[in-house]
């Protein structure tokens, strides 16, 4: 980015089935894409990707906000980023104990290898738990 004193802002919009979670102008967003984390600033190429469990970092000015996001899509378009997700949480809402329990439970289920659906569900739960713990540790 240029060293311009007031860099152009990016419109971030996060929508969940329970409503619009967040809509504001930010400087940069770091998104856990399915092929790895990627950062978006103003002027990014048009880009559509799926999102996996991980932490979503939002930078605006000196401030940095972190959220946990699980599964979804993001559509990047030059001056705006739209994120569609089913679940997004604030780190302070995470119950660490519960996340650890969920992680153990999911691991156990993965070993059982029952049906394909249960396997996928457990895999998803494990990913979710790991993402939660990562942020909660900080």
């Amino acid at each position: 980015m240029s060293n311009n004193k007031s860099p152009k802002k990016l419109l971030l919009k996060i929508t969940t089935p329970k409503g619009i979670f967040l809509e504001k102008k930010v400087d940069e967003v770091v998104i856990p894409g399915s092929a790895g984390y990627f950062g978006v600033m103003y002027g990014h190429t048009a880009f559509l990707t799926s999102i996996t469990s991980g932490s979503l970092e939002i930078y605006s000015g000196e401030k940095k906000d972190t959220y946990i996001i699980h599964n979804g899509f993001s559509e990047v378009n030059f001056d705006e980023v739209r994120i569609l997700t089913e679940t997004i949480e604030k780190p302070e809402d995470i119950d660490k104990k519960r996340a650890i329990q969920a992680k153990e439970r999911a691991k156990k289920r993965l070993k059982e290898k029952k049906s394909e659906i249960n396997f996928r569900r457990a895999e998803f739960a494990l990913k979710r738990a790991i993402a939660r713990l990562e942020v909660a540790h900080e």
């Binding site: 894409g33 399915s34 092929a35 190429t45 048009a46 880009f47 559509l48 990707t49 799926s50 899509f73």
Partner: peptide, 18 residues
């Protein structure tokens, strides 16, 4: 409107998830 987009993973997988 998605004509000039980059996709990740490839389109068919994305479509599946969508």
């Amino acid at each position: 409107f998605l004509a000039s987009y980059l996709f990740e993973p490839e389109e068919s997988k994305l479509l599946d998830e969508l």
